[in-house]
Simulated assay, not measured.
Amino acid sequence: MTLGSADSHAAPGRLTEHEARQRLEHERESRLAQLKAIDAAGVGQQAADDLLAAQRDSARRVLKEIDAAFERLADGTYGDCQGCGRAIPAERLEILPYTRHCVGCRRGAV
Rank of each mutant, 00 (worst) to 15 (best):
C84A: 06
L32D: 12
L32E: 15
L73V: 10
A90F: 01
I88C: 00
E71W: 07
R72C: 10
G79A: 02
G85H: 01
A74G: 10
S5W: 02
G42S: 09
I88H: 00
A6D: 14
L35N: 01
E27F: 01
A20W: 02
T77N: 03
S30D: 13
H26M: 09
H18D: 13
R106Q: 15
E19W: 00
E25N: 11
P12D: 14
G42T: 04
G104D: 14
A68S: 12
P12C: 08
L96E: 06
G79Q: 01
A10S: 12
I95M: 10
Q45L: 14
K64R: 14
I38V: 13
S58H: 12
R100K: 12
H101C: 02
R106M: 14
V62I: 15
Q45I: 14
Q55E: 15
A48C: 04
A90V: 03
R31D: 04
C84D: 10
L32F: 06
E91R: 07
K64F: 08
A10N: 05
L3F: 07
G76R: 04
P12Q: 11
G44E: 09
D7A: 13
V110T: 12
E29P: 00
R56W: 05
G108V: 10
R14E: 15
E25W: 04
H101I: 02
S30W: 10
S5Q: 07
Q45A: 15
H26I: 13
L96M: 07
G108S: 14
L3Y: 08
R23F: 11
L73M: 06
A109L: 13
G79K: 00
I95N: 03
H101V: 03
A10R: 03
A41K: 05
R28N: 05
V43W: 09
L24I: 05
D49N: 15
Y98F: 12
V43S: 14
A69C: 07
R28V: 10
R28K: 11
I38D: 00
G108H: 14
A87R: 01
H9M: 09
A87K: 00
L73D: 06
R92S: 03
A41P: 02
Y78H: 02
R31E: 13
E91G: 11
L96S: 01
